[in-house]
């Protein structure tokens, strides 16, 4: 069964590109354009992995990450943070909050796909 991936970002073009890439890699893809919509989608769709933007209206990426980790039912969900802020602290903050990986924008499309695959393989 194909893994289900949720893309949460407020930039429609970025969502579009990620959606295309993930579909091409053979995953099921769902999207959301802000934090709250993202959480609602997680509840509804139970994705295996979330690609999560940090700077978003109505709950930013960190808040969403915290909310996911606070829910024991969602323990298995993998989280990859995406951010345009490239500073080391941002990365550490994301990892500290329970993110599994961290990708800086602009990203290499290949790398994104690889990282997603790796994480899902680890999870078995």
């Amino acid at each position: 069964m194909a893994n289900k991936i949720l893309v949460v970002d407020d930039e429609p073009n970025i969502v579009l590109s990620l959606e295309f890439l993930m579909k091409q890699a053979g995953f099921l893809v769902r999207t959301a354009s802000d934090g709250e919509a993202g959480l609602a989608a997680i509840a509804a769709e139970q994705p295996d992995l979330v690609l999560l933007d940090v700077m978003m209206p109505r709950k930013n990426g960190y808040e969403v990450c915290q909310a996911i980790r606070a829910n024991p039912d969602w323990k298995a969900i993998r989280i990859i943070m995406l951010t345009a802020k490239g500073r080391e602290v941002e990365r550490e903050k994301g990892l500290a909050l329970g993110a599994d990986d961290y990708i800086t924008k602009p990203f290499s499309t290949q790398e994104v796909v690889e990282r997603v695959r790796e994480l899902l393989a680890e999870a078995g």
Binding site: N13, I14, S17, L18, A84, K105, P106, F107
Partner: peptide
């Protein structure tokens, strides 16, 4: 970075 991300991705 935001527009750059889209440009590079596409």
């Amino acid at each position: 970075r935001t527009p750059l991300t889209s440009i590079r991705a596409f």
